[in-house]
Amino acid sequence: MVGSIAAIGAGLAVLGVGLGIGRIGGSAMEAIARQPEASGKIQTAMLIAAAFIEGVGLFGIVAAILGNNPK
């Protein structure tokens, strides 16, 4: 039971992260379409922002793993 709830928690964390990274990716695409000459800079900024969000998601996943292994 503990495992299932932990898995749901991890899933929820991933949901949020997916939304976040999706938004970043979409906005970056739009930005690149608008200003193709700045695509390099936009990609860097996109990756950094994505890494931030991914980090937050990983906090959630780690919390879920910890919940799964209470010892």
Binding site: N69, P70, K71
Partner: peptide, 8 residues
Amino acid sequence: MELVTPGF
């Protein structure tokens, strides 16, 4: 918990 307990 072991995972997030820093070892000295």
